[in-house]
Amino acid sequence: MIETQDLRKEFRDGRTTKVAVDGLTLAIPPGRVTGLLGLNGAGKTTTIKILATLLRPTSGTVRVDELDPLRDPKAVRHRINLIAGGERMVYARMTGRENLWYFGQLYDVPRAVLGPRIDELLALVGLTGAAGTVVERYSRGMAQRLSIARGLINDPAYLLLDEPTLGLDAPIARDLRRVVARLAAEGKGVLLTSHYLAEVEELCGHVYVIGDGRHLTEGSPAELTARTGGHRTVRVTVPGASPEVEAAVTAFAARAGTVAGLDRAGDGALVVSVSHPGEIAGPLTMAIVGAGGTLAGLEVTEPSLEDAILALNDAAWLVTA
């Protein structure tokens, strides 16, 4: 288990001090993908760099399977690896296979293990055919996939993923999500930061939300969405709707404590949009039908983690302000 207790990181720039991480307490257990979310500048990358032993915390503690990275950095580095989507992290003038071999040496992977593992990882990220090509001839997506293979070269117990799908094409990002889910299922602890909240929602069993370096809340994606009062959005298409239907929808929304959006589609049909935390699709359609309207389409959008994160960030910003 990776655990942090009251983690704090300050950066000094001349006379000014910026607090990037402020009292963060996290747990990243084996066998689960743990999410770390927050807007830009929230302290996610700084936190990951501290866990990866690249930065020292100003105060607070980090333990990786009871090991202290400040006292046993090498032992900790054998158990972890870092994949950062924003950085290439592989050598441009070496081939894919040469890169993996070199990093295998840096991680002291035994020769008998390294060869088969390189083949396995190249297959995993779909680069077997490009294994002998120098990386400077790779596309960005290929280099990123190689970087992912590099992050697995030491078969780490914990994988720190900082925006791993940044810049990847959708099918490759989907394949990577499958790989991450499989790694967690095999028992690895994974910490994931991503701007693609659908990705976090799909993969993470537990999510920490931070803002300005501080812990805002935590829970499963479903819990976070529910806790922040996420709204379902109901969209109903009503062809040839009369003014009575519009009036009935407006009155219904007012009774429910919300406002209805009324738009006209290209064919003249009325498109009604109502957002509300409760189950309102049934009562809304009954109100429309009751006023003489007919339904041509009904769509219910569940509240998303993105809505929840935005709501949390706004709330934190309001408190800070």
Binding site: L54, K74, R77, I80, E87, R88, L106, Y107
Partner: peptide, 18 residues
């Protein structure tokens, strides 16, 4: 400059042999 410093520093190999 090449963007590989993080990958190098996160590996357990010592700086002296490198």
């Amino acid at each position: 400059r090449e963007g590989t410093l993080g990958a190098l520093l996160v590996a357990p190999a010592g700086r002296l042999p490198y």
